[in-house]
Lab assay of single mutants.
Amino acid sequence: IRCIGVSNRDFVEGMSGGTWVDVVLEHGGCVTVMAQDKPTVDIELVTTTVSNMAEVRSYCYEASISDMASDSRCPTQGEAYLDKQSDTQYVCKRTLVDRGWGNGCGLFGKGSLVTCAKFTCSKKMTGKSIQPENLEYRIMLSVHGSQHSGMIVNDTGYETDENRAKVEVTPNSPRAEATLGGFGSLGLDCEPRTGLDFSDLYYLTMNNKHWLVHKEWFHDIPLPWHAGADTGTPHWNNKEALVEFKDAHAKRQTVVVLGSQEGAVHTALAGALEAEMDGAKGKLFSGHLKCRLKMDKLRLKGVSYSLCTAAFTFTKVPAETLHGTVTVEVQYAGTDGPCKIPVQMAVDMQTLTPVGRLITANPVITESTENSKMMLELDPPFGDSYIVIGVGDKKITHHWHRSGSTIGKAFEATVRGAKRMAVLGDTAWDFGSVGGVFNSLGKGIHQIFGAAFKSLFGGMSWFSQILIGTLLVWLGLNTKNGSISLTCLALGGVMIFLSTAVSA
């Protein structure tokens, strides 16, 4: 259960009878995928790494000078000259100064003066180019299975845990398959586009800190620079940016070097996208990844198990997540596992009318040892309800109150669905055939309105939902006002479609 501690969480529900669903994975976010007769899966884009970055340009932001020398000439005696002028490691300046009897010249006039100092770069920052084909995306998957609280967001041991898996995709191999043991396998067909235009970005490294910066900004930095990788004795261009020549006297000129420019660069980098280094690879934390999940090989585990009949206890007080759902960790005293956990939410304890829904599909106890633990997640209705676990006299209950409203949740879900469709863009549509167009249209309606429909009408039977949709269509056909007619027709059509397409 990876997503319960992530604030940016998206719930995606598969269409009834569908074998695939489109998701948008982004750094700092987590996606929970639910479908009829399929286990619930949490998917998170953990890291995006980039390798084989080529150094484009380096800037010196802290330097020192040494070996200063000057040469001067009297008027009419030609130009002052130093051998160091031809050495690229030196920074030199030529000027004219007033000369006369007082400073060793027989004539009054302008004399030539040249001053040089050896330039040494102490600290530099480097910009590297990123090729999209060198990106690698690491995705962690977790099935809502027989897990306890100690396994949440624990990325170790996934090789031997059938509840978890790690997959890596690249532009050259965008397809992967996550093996989930008894739950089958989940196929991923990803489109490795981060949403960032790397043709316009460089990877900047300064003092063990890293950013993504725009090329134009990078090339306009007014500091000494050299092109390409460091060859040991780089040729620094624009050395004068960190060196200041003071007022010249008759035979000498003082040279000083400016202080470190790291603070000024940090100020200019305010708002830039931060990154990290992992050995020789860069780690990015921006952008998104679009994936199509193929769920035809994914299956529920323990459908044929019998119900657990022994007593359950709450190991922890049920807690609310950031998303309005409830996490419950229970301990089973029996030894008759594997068995299914009898769990439901009810409005009252007399009729036990089921409300809400299970995020953890078909929760089971897989071990036959005593005191096995299991964590599950529920989506309670707004208002008061009861969490009921167990059967008969051994069942345990917990009162729950959820604040908020169904309308607010439906609106929030619609906005999130619209954002998801905007990110998917043209990849969500198939114009290759008439059937493809209608299929894409259905998927689009489901992406945007599916979660809201589930919130508003999830407790009704599909037949009642179709009746309401048919009534809206009838009202649309018999209303003389054009805008009201079109609105009723659209709402009725969407409702009829979703009542037959969205899983219960």
Rank of each mutant, 00 (worst) to 15 (best):
I1K: 00
I1R: 00
R2Y: 10
R2S: 10
G5Q: 05
N8R: 00
N8K: 09
V12P: 01
E13R: 01
E13A: 02
G14Q: 08
G14A: 10
M15S: 00
W20E: 05
V21W: 05
V24D: 07
V24A: 09
E26R: 03
H27D: 11
G29P: 00
V31H: 04
V31Q: 04
T32W: 09
A35G: 15
K38I: 06
L45Y: 10
T48M: 13
E55M: 08
V56M: 09
R57L: 02
R57F: 07
R57I: 08
C60Q: 06
C60E: 06
D67R: 02
M68V: 15
S70M: 08
S72M: 07
S72P: 01
R73Q: 08
T76F: 05
D83H: 05
Q85W: 07
S86P: 14
Y90V: 09
Y90H: 12
K93M: 10
G100R: 04
N103L: 01
C105L: 02
C105M: 11
G106A: 15
L107I: 03
G111C: 07
G111R: 08
S112T: 15
T115P: 03
A117Q: 04
F119A: 07
C121Q: 05
C121F: 11
S122W: 14
S122N: 08
T126H: 00
Q131V: 03
P132L: 15
P132E: 06
N134P: 02
E136T: 15
R138E: 07
R138H: 15
L141C: 11
S142M: 06
G145A: 10
Q147H: 00
Q147E: 13
H148P: 10
E159W: 06
E159Q: 15
E159L: 15
T160S: 14
E162P: 14
R164G: 08
K166F: 08
V169W: 07
N172P: 00
S173R: 03
A178V: 15
T179I: 13
T179G: 01
T179P: 00
G181E: 15
G181C: 04
L188V: 14
D189N: 13
C190R: 09
P192Q: 02
P192C: 15
R193W: 10
T194I: 12
G195K: 05
F198V: 05
D200P: 00
D200C: 02
L204C: 09
T205L: 00
T205M: 13
K209W: 09
W211A: 05
K215G: 01
F218C: 08
H219G: 00
D220V: 06
D220E: 12
I221W: 07
P222D: 11
P222K: 09
P224M: 12
A227Q: 09
G228K: 08
A229Q: 13
D230T: 10
T233I: 09
P234S: 14
E240N: 15
V243R: 00
E244P: 00
K246E: 12
D247A: 15
K251N: 00
R252Q: 05
Q253K: 02
V255M: 07
G259Q: 09
G259S: 03
S260Y: 10
E262D: 08
E262C: 10
V265L: 13
T267N: 15
T267M: 12
A268R: 10
L269F: 14
A272V: 10
L273C: 11
E276L: 01
M277V: 09
G279N: 14
A280N: 14
A280G: 13
G282N: 03
K283C: 00
L284T: 06
G287A: 15
K290D: 03
L293D: 04
L293T: 02
K294Y: 07
K294E: 14
K294T: 02
D296F: 09
L298M: 13
L300R: 01
K301P: 00
G302E: 09
S304A: 07
Y305S: 01
F314I: 10
T315S: 13
T315N: 12
K316S: 00
P318T: 02
E320W: 08
T321Q: 06
T321Y: 09
V328L: 07
V330F: 08
V330A: 13
Y332K: 08
A333F: 07
T335L: 13
P338S: 09
K340M: 11
Q344W: 03
M345L: 15
T351V: 14
T351M: 11
T353G: 14
V355N: 00
G356K: 05
L358N: 11
L358S: 15
I359R: 08
T360H: 06
A361L: 01
A361G: 11
V364R: 00
M374V: 08
M375K: 03
L376P: 01
L376Y: 02
L378P: 06
D379W: 04
P380I: 13
P381D: 06
F382V: 07
S385D: 13
I389V: 12
V391W: 14
I396H: 00
H398W: 13
H398N: 02
H399W: 15
S405P: 04
S405I: 08
S405G: 10
K409S: 04
A410L: 02
F411M: 11
K419H: 13
G425T: 06
T427H: 02
W429Y: 03
D430K: 06
V434G: 08
G436D: 10
V437P: 00
F438G: 00
N439I: 07
F453M: 10
F453V: 12
K454W: 13
G458I: 06
S461P: 13
S461N: 15
L467V: 15
L467P: 11
G469D: 11
T470H: 09
L471I: 12
W474S: 02
W474F: 12
G476H: 09
N478W: 09
T479M: 15
K480Y: 13
S483M: 08
S485V: 01
L486A: 14
T487F: 05
A490H: 10
G492Q: 07
G493W: 09
V494R: 00
F497V: 11
F497P: 08
S503E: 11
A504K: 11
A504I: 12
